[in-house]
Design a protein around this nucleic acid. Structure first.
Lengths: 343, 343
DNA sequence: ATTCAATATTTACGCGCGCTAAATTTTTAT
DNA sequence: ATAAAAATTTAGCGCGCGTAAATATTGAAT
């Protein structure tokens, strides 16, 4: 392919022996032109490799092929992993994902949404901060563009929500922990950065009550996204003070758990469910690195793949039907219990 | 700000009592118009909040404000961290970074560069795969756009390279390990995904020779980006077979080290430099999670901030002078030895 | 007040493509 | 073969802005 330089669609159309509007149709949808003309165009394409000017296209089209993908923090492996999958699914579907991280700052989430406006996205996939999000900004964006929320829900925002069923997943863990040893204490941040934390606490409470157990919640000070640090420092403080009333700790997420594992190690506490162990620690999310902690972390696996694919297909469903269904859907996938050494 | 809806620059110019081209000049560079007209424009801006259409701008400008940022794998915390910093530095400078991950696939690196072409980027910051990169594609891109390489170098590609001085950093570690205990074995992948690996091996060899020590290199099978998995499986295999000829292992990077820590733990080996320890393990990079391994990982910290900032400033230097200096620069920053529990 | 160069603004045109309506051709169905 | 349907072509406007060249304005020096 490709030797001569073609300036624009006009020239390319001339070369391929087809009129410009038809060539334009072809690039919008190759199936919309007659098979023979399609062949001609593609033949010319092989010899001259031309592609339409993106800016001119986007300027004149009523809708672009851009998909905004906004996550709160790409430095968190959870979001980099799910963001990655969402990105690939968009490409697969012939769209151009634009991946934006808010770097842990709700304000930048607002800025990101604002930048996206200028790109006239066909739709947006947003993993919001939740209650820390600028709700007015998010709602306003929702009014103007097709939007699907994932990971964290906001009441009535977006045409769909896709995430994990925290009630189910936490119950699974609580049930396992109660069955296999002492009932779990719950360790979390006092002011969690992620709204799932609240659902998980609630799920813990309900599950413990269902098992006839007393709830024991321990909240760490500190804000931000340095979860391991908080888990290590604050969790270590609780450990040192022997505050936990059982030997089993369910952490609100894996990153806190990793921090606590680190604290326990440094205190010489032996973590695990075997004989001679002092402590059981469990997490939630099945972070990419949880398999390699010492001991490996018992946790709940979120179905990254399913969440990403469903979020994308929900959005593309709206796009292709070109309507915004009045019935907002909420899809939650079950978590899977991953039993490893730590609990 | 902002009640009425302004369609285009024409309307906005009318409202502010200035001609459209002057308004256009203003948006290109507010300082380029007379102070009195600038005041008028900004007054109008306060009342009507308008912003120029990005697509129309980019179509007609000879150069956009887009900066392509391409990294091999955002799922690797090293790249998500350095990518993050590069991104922020670009925004700071008034440019629009477009962050693209190649998801571990050199082929997608080529595709990413290709997609970038369509966006007429003002410049590109590329962390290449190195020898696995499609060198022709990278060079061709280099011909057409200002480009700065970071993390991994390719001979004579890009107007500048910014990275870490592996010779210095590895030597620092080797020196420390030799001084404080048995000389290190070197653990790496046989077919490393990252070109720095080769430099580090070379640096290890030279440093060991300088210290009058015999070099001992152990290479793991396996390819791809699941470094922890490889470190755990293959590293564990070496450990089980007692292949290592000293009790000290320097891993080519932290992720391999994390895997090996995991293997050592599962085998009941005690890692550290204290009394009663069986093994010392050290890494390289100071991954965000290395502080929280068990034991915490002794490693070399790369200066993420400095690398990101320098790469960006090298690029913007070229952009603002609007010339491509003939003298290609290579900047490497020193690594810092981070002594923690593991070695 | 006048002059003149420096600077700012306006005029005029072009970028590359989407979209539409009407005219024409080609294909499909009868 | 013929009519109906579908696809293509012709023609042309519009999108929102950048930019070179022409013109006007400014302010300092006479």
């Amino acid at each position: 392919m490709g030797q001569s330089k073609i300036r624009n669609m006009e020239e390319f159309a001339a070369i391929s022996g087809i009129s410009r509007p038809t060539v334009s149709k072809y690039f919008n949808n190759p199936d919309s032109v007659r098979i023979t003309t399609r062949a001609k165009i593609e033949a010319a394409l092989k010899k001259h490799d031309y592609q339409p000017n993106v800016f001119a296209m986007n300027q004149n089209r009523r809708t672009t092929k851009n998909i905004g993908v906004v996550v709160p923090n790409l430095a968190d492996p959870f979001f980099s992993e799910i963001g990655r999958r969402v990105e690939l699914a968009c490409i697969e579907a012939g769209y151009s994902p634009i991946l934006l991280s808010s770097h842990g700052s709700p304000e930048m989430e607002r800025e990101n949404l604002n930048s996206l406006r200028a790109l006239k996205p066909a739709g947006v996939l947003l993993a919001p901060f939740g209650r820390m999000s600028d709700e007015a900004a998010v709602r306003s964006f929702d009014d103007d563009f097709p939007m699907v929320l994932f990971d964290a829900n906001i009441l009535d925002v977006g045409q769909a929500f896709v995430g994990t069923d925290n009630a189910q997943s936490v119950d699974l863990m609580v049930e396992y922990l109660c069955r296999s040893g002492e009932p779990p204490c719950f360790f979390e941040m006092k002011n969690p950065s992620n709204p799932n934390a609240n659902k998980r606490r609630q799920a813990y409470i309900e599950s413990m009550e269902r098992h006839g157990q007393e709830t024991r919640i321990f909240q760490a000070e500190g804000a931000g996204w340095d979860f391991e640090e908080i888990g290590s420092t604050e969790g270590g403080r609780f450990l040192a003070a022997q505050s936990f009333s059982t030997n089993t700790i369910l952490c609100s997420n894996d990153r806190l758990a990793i921090g606590m594992l680190s604290a326990a190690y440094s205190m010489g506490l032996r973590v695990g469910h075997g004989a001679g162990c002092d402590l059981r620690i469990a997490g939630h999310d099945d972070h990419p690195f949880s398999r390699f902690t010492c001991p490996p972390l018992t946790t709940i696996a979120q179905d990254y793949e399913a969440i990403a694919n469903r979020a994308v297909s929900e959005l593309f469903g709206m796009l292709e039907n070109d309507d915004r269904p009045s019935n907002r859907t909420e899809t939650t996938f079950h978590g899977r219990l991953i039993m490893r050494g730590s609990a």
